[in-house]
Amino acid sequence: MQTIILFACLVSTYLMVIAKRMPALIMGFRYQSFFLFLVTLLMAIAERRIDLYSIAGLLLALKVVLIPGLLYRIVARIKANENLGLFLNTQLSLLCALGFTCLSWVFSARLLAPGNVLVTTTLTIAFFMVLAGIFLMIFRMTALAQIIGLLVMENGMFLLASTVSGGMPFFVEIAIFFDVFVSVLIMGFFVYRINKLFTHVDVNKLSRLKG
C-alpha cells in the first residue's frame, strides 16, 4: 500500500516537471502533498502515534488546502501570463527527471544496506523530490515556480527525514510547517509586488536591476 502511494508521489512530481502552466504546477503540488499526507497517515496508523496524526493533519490543512489555495489566488490576482516560461522543454525536462530518479536510486542504494527495498524506494523518491524542486527553481522563469520549487524541496526533505530518522521531533516539524507557511505568504506578497512594479514575474529579467 505504502509503495503504491509513494509511486503516486513520484508520478505527481513528474507531472509538475512537465507542467507548462501555473495552475497545472499548483495542481501537481497539491497532489504531491496529498499523497505525502497519505503516507504520513499510514505511518501514524501503523505506529499508533498521536503526534504523527497531528502532523498529517497539519500537512493536509497547510500543504493541500491553504498553500495551493493561496497560490491560486496569487495567480488569479496578478492576472499575468499563465505560462511558466520554460528554459528546458517538457520532453527534455522529463528526461532530466528520469535521470535524477536513476541517480537518486544509485545514491540511496549506496547509502543504505541492501535488502530493505521499501526504505530504499522511499529514500530514492524523497531525494528525487529534492532534486526536482531545485530543478523547477532553476529551469522555470517565473518567481511563482521558484516558490513551488522550494515547497517541493521541503516536501522531499520531510519524506527524507521520516525515512531516514523516523521523522523529526514533533515541535521541529510544527515549526517547519509554520516556517513554510509564512515564507510562502511573504514570497507570495513579493511576487505580487514584483508583478505590480515590473508588470511581470519573470525572474530572468530581474537581472537588469543589477548595477
Binding site: V106, F107, L131, I134, I138, M141
Partner: peptide, 24 residues
Amino acid sequence: QPGSIHLYLGYIFASVLLLIIFIN
C-alpha cells in the same frame, strides 16, 4: 556572475549533483 537567480541556483544544483556522483 551575471546576476541571474536561475544560474546561481544552477551552480548549487550542479555542485550537489557532482557531489552525489563523486560519493559513488
